[in-house]
Amino acid sequence: MGVFKDAGHLFRFLAIFVFLFIAFWVIRGFVVPKSFGKYGHYRAASIDEIAAHPLHFAGHEACETCHVDVANVKKDGKHAHVNCEACHGALQKHAEDPASLTPTKPDTATLCVRCHEYSAARPKNFPQVHAAEHSTGLPCETCHQPHSPAMTSGGAK
């Protein structure tokens, strides 16, 4: 018993450890979300929260149900795999109720160069121009049909 008596102070230090350990688990119980770890190393409830976010993009299928003519032009062109909303912006509201929002027509003089202005970081076979020399500020659609950009007269692609 003498050993325990003379080692009593060590148990006091150990008690601090135990207290801190319990405090950690209590705090952890409060701060870690209940659904954490259900599916993986994240909060499972976040999936429902994200799913509940309002939609902004309608998706090209929604556009193509009404704009069949554009879809037909686009499907065989170089931009076949460019989504409508990549250029026209998020238009879920327009898809839900076309009368509620009329999309503004993009300015091709500034829109196209986002992808087609020359940059060394882009792949060499990707069509790129120095816009200032190539079009001198003219809208690209003066010569190119945006939905199917190859020029029909056999000019620049």
């Binding site: 009593g8 102070h9 006091r12």
Partner: peptide
Amino acid sequence: TLGSNNIS
């Protein structure tokens, strides 16, 4: 001291 004065 954590309440222990035992320095025997």
